[in-house]
Design a protein around this nucleic acid. Structure first.
Lengths: 208, 208
DNA sequence: TTAAAATTCAAACAAGCGTTTAAAATAGCT
DNA sequence: AGCTATTTTAAACGCTTGTTTGAATTTTAA
């Protein structure tokens, strides 16, 4: 295992757990059992390391997501909103085969990135992977064409908030579910619970 | 204006903007034009200052919220979910008269607190202000009794995520709405948009 | 007015941060 | 083998962090 990958593996777990600001390079390098200076040697800076951690996941996810949403758009049949959101399920769960707990880690990273660091990750994702966003918007528009661009804007951001926030605290929530309901839930179970919620939210009657 | 209040006023704005970890005591005290040591003298520690900032809002909000949700529960008529979520509107907007931009600041603080600091604010709120949570749960149950406790648990957390995440990035979203749609939106407008969304989400068909 | 209490202040503290340096070690190549 | 380029290492850098100190100042009350 290369030093670079040892760093990435340790960093993604710590970042997802304690946030980007909350994780120091010393924690990462001691967890990875490499020298402190290795981060700056291989990645240049902490900021670049964060980008590298996210890129590793996005490069795995984004083609599958584009494909899934793309076929939904090119199909003749009009998809339901449930179809649109369900299209995320397989690409996201595929991250679990790509890496242990990959789905959960990635979604937590996403949540961290949106609130930490004053939105620089938002910029990074929307500029580096714009196709995912436009494909998603198009798919939702096809499923619910009555929604105006402005209403769509708000509801998609509400949806993003639901997903990202839920996933960034999913470990705590899964713990509570285990204690209060004796129910063993995994990340796939949470995603399946959230899909009808966001689909119904986006499909809500248009407010006057 | 007392030193204590000068600190609280400066802290809440900086905390809501840059998070708890992202704001230093030196930024706060220089913004408040007080000595650095004043924070530790008056509050004991940074953590206690964070609690004090949140308490000032919660003490203003929680009785109004309990009352609004309480009457909803004690009324004979069965409320709609829209009624339940709308009950938050007045108490939240009241924070604007209590303080300039109070609603927005408080909701952003809430969002920060849920992701920063590994959930210690979640513990603080649920243990210090438990009535708000139980009243809310009861009101939702009355509006939608078919929902099981477990499903309710998940959907209420999805809702919390939607609200908190949206509000913590509401400034950025309001900016985008201004640029893309020439639409001047304020925090009350965002709240009114989000109510039908979360109401529909909670009311979504029960997943098998 | 005077003594005690509360508050403010400048300064320093120890600890942690990301980053840089230059020497040591390793690897790749002719 | 011997030279070059790459990588690893320990140490230190400069800076920021939250907190503490003890003296100066202001406020309070008798």
């Amino acid at each position: 295992m290369s030093t670079k990958n040892k760093i990435l593996d340790a960093a993604e777990v710590l970042f997802s757990d304690k946030g980007f600001n909350g994780t120091s390079l010393r924690e990462i390098t001691s967890q990875a059992e490499v020298n402190l200076a290795a981060v700056n040697y291989h990645f240049g800076s902490k900021k670049e390391l964060i980008k590298a951690v996210m890129s590793r996941y996005m490069n795995e996810l984004s083609p599958r997501l584009e494909s899934a949403l793309g076929t939904l758009c090119s199909d003749e049949a009009k998809p339901s909103l449930i179809d649109v959101f369900s299209a995320f399920l397989d690409p996201l769960l595929h991250l679990n085969t790509f890496k242990d707990n990959g789905t959960s880690i990635f979604l937590q990273l996403l949540g961290r990135g949106y609130t930490d660091s004053q939105g620089f990750l938002r910029w990074f994702l929307t500029t580096q992977y714009p196709n995912v966003f436009t494909n998603f918007t198009n798919a939702v528009h096809k499923a619910y064409p009555e929604l105006s661009a402005e209403e769509m804007f708000w509801r998609l951001h509400f949806t993003m908030g639901t997903i990202v926030f839920t996933m960034s605290s999913s470990d705590a929530l899964i713990d509570i579910a285990l204690n209060d309901f004796d129910r063993q839930v995994d990340i796939a179970g949470v995603i399946k619970q959230v899909i009808p919620y966001v689909a119904a939210g986006v499909a809500a009657p248009i407010v006057k």
